[in-house]
C-alpha cells in the first residue's frame, strides 16, 4: 500500500515536472498571453523579418503581439493577438516598421480607421519606404556614379587647367601695368602735395598774404607804368641817331 502510494506520488511529481516544463517553455517563447485578447489575421506580401512575440503598437501604445506567422502561397498570413479594448475597423492601416534603423527588431504599427465594418482579414501595407531602403538606394546610386568612366575626361580637365593657368598669367600681366602707372602717379601727386604743403619757396609763394599784396601792388605799379609809357613814350624812349 505504502509502496503503491509512493509510486503514485512519484508519478504525479514527474508528470507535474513535464507539465511545468511545457508551460514554462510555451510561456517564455511568447505563445501564452496573459491579457484578455482576440486574434486578427493580417495578410502581408513581405514581413521584413518580423518575429513571433514582436509588439503591435496602436497610436504608439503597445496593444498586442505577433502570435504567429505562416507563408501562404504568395503572401504571409500574420496573426496578431490584440487587446480587447481595441477596435480595428476595415480601413485600419497596418504596417511593419523597424524599431531602430540599425537593428533587426520590428514592430507592427496599427492606425485604426473610421469605418464601422470589421473584415475577416486585414491587408497590411508592405514595401513601405523606409530610411534604410532610402540609404540603400542612395548607396547604389553612388556606386553607379563611381562606375561611370569617360576616357577623354582626364585629358580635357588637364587642358582646361592649363588654359586657365595661362589666362590667369596673362591677366596678371595686364593688371600689373596699370597698377604700376597708378603707383607712379600717386607718388608724383604725393610729391606735389608735399611741395604745396611745405615751408619751401613754392609753399610760401602760395600761402603768404604779404607776398600776394606785394605782387598785386607790383602789378598795379607795372600797369600804371605801361599806361604812362604808352601816353608818353618819349619820356622813356629817347632815340638819338647822332
Amino acid at each position: 500500500m505504502i509502496r503503491g502510494l509512493k509510486e503514485t506520488l512519484v508519478g504525479i511529481f514527474v508528470i507535474i515536472g513535464i507539465i511545468v516544463f511545457i508551460v514554462l517553455y510555451t510561456w517564455l517563447s511568447g505563445r501564452i498571453s496573459f491579457g484578455n485578447t482576440y486574434d486578427i489575421k493580417v495578410q502581408f506580401e513581405d514581413v521584413e523579418g518580423l518575429r513571433v512575440g514582436d509588439p503591435v503598437l496602436v497610436f504608439g501604445i503597445e496593444k498586442g503581439k505577433v502570435k504567429s506567422l505562416q507563408i501562404e502561397r504568395d503572401h504571409v498570413l500574420v496573426v496578431l493577438a490584440m487587446d480587447r479594448d481595441i477596435f480595428l475597423p476595415e480601413d485600419t492601416h497596418i504596417a511593419i516598421r523597424a524599431v531602430s534603423y540599425i537593428g533587426a527588431d520590428k514592430y507592427v504599427k496599427v492606425t485604426p480607421g473610421r469605418s464601422q465594418e470589421v473584415p475577416q482579414i486585414y491587408y497590411g501595407a508592405s514595401g513601405s519606404l523606409q530610411l534604410e531602403e532610402l540609404a540603400a538606394q542612395l548607396d547604389s546610386l553612388i556606386t553607379t556614379f563611381g562606375k561611370i568612366e569617360i576616357p577623354d575626361l582626364d585629358e580635357a580637365v588637364r587642358k582646361l587647367s592649363n588654359d586657365i593657368g595661362k589666362s590667369l598669367e596673362h591677366l596678371t600681366v595686364m593688371v600689373k601695368k596699370p597698377v604700376d602707372r597708378i603707383e607712379k602717379l600717386a607718388y608724383r601727386l604725393d610729391s606735389l602735395s608735399m611741395l604745396v604743403k611745405g615751408d619751401g619757396t613754392f609753399g610760401k609763394l602760395l600761402k603768404s598774404d604779404e607776398l600776394y599784396e606785394e605782387i598785386r601792388e607790383t602789378n598795379l605799379a607795372l600797369k600804371s607804368l605801361i599806361e604812362d609809357i604808352n601816353a608818353n613814350p618819349k619820356k622813356y624812349l629817347q632815340i638819338k641817331v647822332f
Partner: peptide
Amino acid sequence: PFGVFNYGLTHFFYAKEF
C-alpha cells in the same frame, strides 16, 4: 506591470538558454 515584465522575459528568450 506583469505585461511589461512578461514582454522582456519572452522577447529576449532563447530556447538554447532554457
